[in-house]
């Protein structure tokens, strides 16, 4: 695999909340077409970093460029296309509780103001089918869904615009093993068909191993290590040891 360009480029990023330093000089490049997993202990700033990449928070210092353009320097057209080309799966789904499942997925499509309703209907039903939600659930409200279904509908919404860049925050938390297996399968299928770049936060070792091309370990306010699974697991770092030791314990049980 050879990569040349960064789809996301983070340079000299510092984050500080009051006296508490979260990130110290983080430099990170996410290449086109790869799956990058962010791992780290609780409070290591994974979610903050993701929110900064999404433009929901401003770093104290440094720049974050997505598709070659920093969020606050983009003009209207650029930032619109940037948002249309990326999808986000939030940790708790963040479905609009006032809209039905169908309307939740149709919303980003309708916001384009170029597709007609029959087109949108077909696309929504395709996306629902993709995440294995049957048509009978389409008219339900998010409050009537189970946790796993909320997650899958949220994924369908994140995929509604067929994004090139997908952000996943704890994608398999709250899914049963079978569903998280089919989730992995779905992402794998999508990657073969589409040019898909994924940035993922996860604690789930199975999906980490199954999907990641590279893993970035956030510890002690910095990117402690970055590389593929083999490289990372050979490193000696207190966090990495404890993180992957758990896996070895699991394997001994089996």
């Amino acid at each position: 695999m050879t990569y040349k360009d960064c789809i996301i480029e983070i340079k000299g990023l510092h984050t500080q909340f009051g006296d508490h330093i979260v990130h110290r000089d983080i430099n990170l490049c996410v290449y086109y077409g790869e799956v990058l997993s962010l791992v780290g202990g609780s409070g290591s700033g994974k979610t903050t970093l993701l929110r900064q990449i999404l433009g929901l928070e401003e770093p104290t210092l440094g720049t974050v460029k997505t598709f070659g353009c920093a969020r606050n320097e983009c003009n209207y057209e650029q930032s619109k296309s940037l948002r249309n080309r990326s999808g986000v799966l939030f940790q708790n789904g963040a479905l609009f509780s006032a809209l039905t499942v169908f309307d939740n997925i149709a919303l980003p499509l309708r916001e384009l103001h170029t597709l007609d309703e029959s087109f949108i209907r077909d696309l929504v039903m395709l996306k629902l089918d993709m995440v294995a939600i049957s048509a009978q659930h389409a008219n339900k409200m998010p409050a009537d869904l189970s946790g796993g279904m909320v997650k899958r509908v949220a994924l369908a919404r994140a995929l509604a615009l067929d994004p090139e860049l997908l952000f996943l925050d704890e994608p398999t938390a709250g899914l049963d093993p079978h569903l998280s297996q089919s989730f992995v399968q779905l992402i794998k299928t999508l990657r073969t068909e589409m040019k898909l770049t994924i940035v993922m936060i996860t604690h789930d070792l199975d999906i980490l191993v199954a999907l990641s091309d590279r893993i970035a370990v956030l510890a002690e306010e910095q990117v402690a290590a970055i590389g593929n699974l083999q490289e990372i697991s050979n490193l000696h770092h207190p966090f990495i040891d404890s993180f992957f030791m758990g896996k070895k314990h699991d394997e001994t049980i089996q």
């Binding site: 169908f102 209907r121 077909d122 929504v124 039903m125 395709l126 629902l128 089918d129 049957s134 048509a135 009978q136 389409a138 008219n139 299928t189 073969t192 068909e193």
Partner: peptide, 19 residues
């Protein structure tokens, strides 16, 4: 071949539920 796969996967559009 890979397009064939996509067509196969996305070939059937499920009908939306009737109100």
């Amino acid at each position: 071949p890979e397009q064939e796969k996509i067509f196969e996967r996305l070939g059937k559009i499920p009908a939306p539920p009737t109100t």
